[in-house]
Computed example of a mutant assay.
Amino acid sequence: MRTLKTVFGQNIKPNLNRDMKVECIRTSLDNPPLDSINHNLDEYLTIGDSFLVYGIRFAESGRYVYIYDGNHLIEAPISLFKIIHDLTPKWKIKIWENMEITFWPELFYESDFLENFAERESEERQLFSDLQLEIEERFD
């Protein structure tokens, strides 16, 4: 029998070849660090909603997950969520010059991908749609 693992301080069930999935448990942080980003997502998140995770970033300002709300790829503090399914083995880890660590699908490391996606460029939207479909199929 498999035992529970701890990721980000949370006990979780073994992956069983699924991607990471989180459930929103709060929509904002109380007393966030001054350099944290997106610490109030009241307009974007609803408690109880679940999201596939498209990346993780470890920064001095905090730990973040990348979720998709149907319109935006949102970088949100991990502490707004509980982990339903743990990490995927298909992502790449990179340590940046500023010592931040990212754990993303390879697509996110392509030049200007995240910026172009945010600007709703059609090529990046299609590439993301393909990635989203691939990840969602693993949950069926």
Rank of each mutant, 00 (worst) to 15 (best):
A118M: 13
I25C: 13
Y66H: 11
W104V: 05
Y109R: 06
P32C: 01
W96E: 14
N40M: 01
E75S: 11
F117P: 00
N38S: 08
W91S: 05
L107G: 09
H72A: 12
L45M: 08
F81R: 00
Y68R: 02
T88W: 02
L114P: 00
A76H: 02
H72V: 06
D49T: 07
I25R: 10
N98D: 15
P32W: 01
D112V: 04
L34T: 08
L41D: 06
E110F: 11
P32K: 00
D130H: 12
Y44M: 04
E97I: 09
I93Q: 14
E60R: 14
E124L: 04
E115F: 15
R26S: 09
T27A: 06
D86P: 07
E134C: 05
L29H: 07
I67C: 02
L80R: 02
L73M: 13
R120F: 05
I47N: 04
S50W: 12
F113H: 08
L87S: 07
V53I: 10
T88I: 01
Q132N: 14
C24H: 10
F117S: 02
I95P: 05
H85S: 15
E115A: 12
Q132T: 03
E60H: 13
E106K: 12
P77D: 04
A76D: 04
L73S: 02
L80M: 15
D30N: 10
F58Y: 15
L41A: 08
D69A: 04
Y54H: 09
I67A: 02
G48S: 08
P105D: 10
I95A: 11
T46S: 14
